[in-house]
Design a protein around this nucleic acid. Structure first.
Lengths: 225, 225
DNA sequence: AGCGATCAGATTGTCAGATAATCTAACGAG
DNA sequence: CTCGTTAGATTATCTGACAATCTGATCGCT
């Protein structure tokens, strides 16, 4: 199996060896890996150092650990990785205008997928409509924010494109503080926009829905300049 | 500072708290974090459990540790992430068709930004053209792949929207294996597509450039079904 | 005064030994 | 046959400790 270790940080070497083991054996998600104790013996290191390595790999989904059972090969899910993209300088230091532009591109870009799926599944329209109705009867900023977020997320989800849902979630985190500065009158406009977007989508009119959505998202532009 | 912990895996909670701390304090790369011992005291857990959390974060670059000094904030570096994720594409859990759709949306979505900037800065066109020329004179798969990646990345970069560049880099990691199965004749078609895209962009024709780019990216669709 | 060497203190890296928590399979009772 | 219990296996977390590395302060020499 694997041979004992040379240099650098012991846990990093262990992590590399585990990866090598997975590749060499052509292991797939769900396949069993040696136990922590076995790995510790094989590498000639402490079990806790093995754990440091496996927790690192586990963070990315490469390895799965189950108490009482053992270690298995995991799988790498894009949304989980995307989640941490928030610590990438491009997001962390992003210009607010870029956040707006990025949201516009993503959200208008998925609309053709939304309308196509909406044509087959009316529950999509119903779900969005329900959010608009809830928004209309909401009375405080906190709820408006939650419902606005929910609406836009549901829109992305309705496309079925999980990578973009993940990315939208990420942008949302950085966008949060801008929502908090929206005035009461502007939230009312926002409700009408959401309704308008749902109506255009229901009619299969991607271009009009996109135009409305763009205007809606860009309404933040002046306020956050 | 941070308060003591409730539930689930203790190390995972610790990792989340550390991330929250970084975000709440608006910490930047290089900024000091509490020491392992301090974190252990604050969270009311063992120092080794703190280490399991920090090693996980360190694997992605979010945290840096230096013997004798302490912990600092790091940042996500996608080449490092790519290395970790790319070692065994069989572990990737991302629907290929969704990757294609997402790429189409992102890359066509930035084109109006590219043409606008290209009108003011001819070096953008020159840079893209140079990549096409290099592509045309390349003779092996590895170089074709590199240049294709470089072209698409440059396209995103040319928009000036750094969040989308980072996200495009992430998508690329999951897309890598599909590039490797492209046949020689298809790479030649790819070269002409790149040229066509550059020409349309130079002419300020976003719609045509978008159509060509969509066709180019979607050329993968049948092969990776 | 400036430079280099040494040392003390701080912090991470790794370990040994141990108990707690969770899962699975086997066995026994109804 | 089904359900409950138990034993064994393995991960989750802990205490206590020493090793390795870094940084800043101090001292000695030129």
């Amino acid at each position: 199996m694997m041979k004992a270790l040379p240099r650098t940080k012991i846990r990093d070497q262990a992590a590399e060896r585990i990866k090598e083991h997975i590749v060499a054996r052509k292991l797939l998600p769900g396949d069993r890996l040696p136990t922590e104790t076995e790995l510790a013996e094989t590498f000639g290191i402490s079990r806790l150092s093995v754990r440091e390595a496996t927790k690192a790999l586990e963070f990315l989904g490469i390895v799965r650990a189950k108490t009482g059972v053992g270690l298995t090969v995991g799988q790498i899910e894009l949304p989980r990785v995307a989640e941490h993209l928030g610590f990438h300088p491009a997001l962390h230091c992003a210009d607010p205008q870029q956040l707006i532009d990025s949201r516009v591109i993503i959200e208008t870009g998925v609309l053709s997928h939304v309308t196509r799926r909406m044509a087959d599944d009316d529950s999509i329209r119903k779900k969005l409509q329900k959010l608009v109705d809830q928004f209309r009867s909401a009375r405080d900023l906190k709820t408006w924010i939650e419902l606005d977020i929910e609406f836009h997320r549901t829109l992305l989800e309705s496309s079925g494109l999980t990578p973009l849902v993940a990315f939208g979630d990420l942008l949302r985190i950085f966008f949060q503080r801008f929502r908090e500065s929206v005035k009461k009158a502007e939230w009312k406009v926002g409700i009408d926009s959401h309704q308008c977007i749902v109506d255009h989508l229901a009619a299969g009119d991607v271009a009009q829905a996109a135009a409305e959505l763009r205007t809606h998202i860009e309404s933040h532009r002046e306020r956050i300049r």
